[in-house]
């Protein structure tokens, strides 16, 4: 491509925002379809063929609704909070490689940047809950924070393992290392990796407040949690942020473990748009799993969540870190390679 740098970034930005908005809309549709079929129903079907225009109708409904600002809220926090959830998520897409050359900014610390932005997300929940002047929202905000703190640790430990394995924080680089067929994916790099993947995936679920870790918006306990008081697009932006975060989480899992845009078999091309295809196929598969999980399990409690994090995920991820480190250092000694 011959675009100059500022134009390139602009083009990517517009593309990413469109991608996020479209995805948020159609993931809701997909979620409703998946939920429907899991439960023996059909899901949306009235608006357009297969209900495909349903997201459009929902969008129009949300946008045409009045943005209520209830009495007693902190107006600034109340209005900023949804953006604080959405914007970092959109920013994170800047470093995600959709294809070999399809990345907005191929920076060397891409992974770090995503985690930096991910921790802003929780601020949005906290401020939204706090600013709403609603007891349910405050409880939910407190839950969301403790949950995020607890889950960032095992997630980061797993990520450190991956960094050790790949010795880079550049996401595109990581993907390139996994070229050459399914067996070269990091998922199969050593016998511990499937567990690392599982831990990463569980943490990603918890980070994005998805069931069974949706304590923040536990509808049977806290009505709608931090977005109880939001109406219209205020709620809509929270929603988009949630789905954007899910896409980010799943993309990261794909990049770290499942070979990013690489095709699973060498005889299948991953050049150009094929790369995008493979990448999105894997991401959507993981997103489907996320939905599948949501519609299968009951919700955990905060205790259950912290127990899982501190008693299971952290020790095991530490163990994986140690063993992987040992393997990287000791294996070459044994086999005599340099």
């Amino acid at each position: 491509m011959t675009l100059t740098e500022p134009w390139r970034v602009l083009a990517f930005l517009v593309g990413i925002i469109a991608f996020v908005a479209l995805n948020a809309a159609y993931l809701v549709w997909l979620e409703r379809k998946v939920a429907g079929h899991i439960q023996g129903r059909i899901g949306p079907k009235e608006v357009g063929p297969f209900g495909l225009l349903q997201p459009l109708a929902d969008g129009i409904k949300l946008m045409s609704k009045q943005l209520l600002v209830p009495k007693g809220v902190d107006p600034l926090l109340f209005k900023v909070a949804p953006l604080l959830v959405l914007v970092p998520a959109v920013m994170s897409f800047v470093t995600i490689p959709f294809g070999e050359n399809l990345v907005a900014r191929n920076i060397d610390i891409g992974l770090l940047m995503i985690f930096a932005f991910a921790s802003v997300n929780v601020m949005g929940l906290l401020l939204g809950g706090w600013g709403s002047n609603n007891k349910y929202a405050v409880i939910s905000a407190a839950r969301a924070v403790s949950q995020n703190v607890a889950y960032e640790i095992p997630m980061l430990i797993t990520v450190v393992t991956m960094i050790m394995l790949t010795s880079t924080m550049n996401l595109n680089e990581m993907v390139i290392q996994q070229g050459g067929g399914i067996l070269n994916w990091h998922f199969f790099a050593n016998p511990l990796m499937p567990f690392a993947f599982l831990i990463f995936f569980v943490c990603a679920l918890a980070e994005t407040n998805r069931a069974p870790f949706d304590l923040g918006e536990a509808e049977s306990e806290l009505i709608a949690g931090f977005h109880t008081e939001y109406s219209g697009m205020g709620f809509g932006v929270f929603f988009m942020g949630e789905y954007a975060n899910i896409i980010i989480g799943c993309s990261l899992a794909v990049i770290l473990f499942l070979g990013g845009w690489q095709s699973p078999f060498e005889f299948l091309s991953d050049q150009g748009l094929w790369g995008v295809f493979w990448f999105l196929a894997k991401v959507y598969f993981l997103i489907f799993c996320v939905m599948w999980i949501r519609w299968t399990y009951p919700r955990t409690t905060l205790w259950g969540l912290l127990n899982l994090s501190w008693k299971i995920l952290i020790p095991i991820s530490l163990l994986i870190l140690l063993l992987t480190g040992a393997m990287i250092k000791v294996w070459p000694l044994i086999t005599g390679a340099s």
Binding site: H37, I38, Q39, R41, I42, W292, T296
Partner: peptide, 15 residues
């Protein structure tokens, strides 16, 4: 649990 919900997902709808 996932297996069961998958089983029901590919069954015909009942509604």
């Amino acid at each position: 649990g996932l297996g069961i919900t998958f089983k029901y997902m590919i069954k015909p709808v009942v509604t």
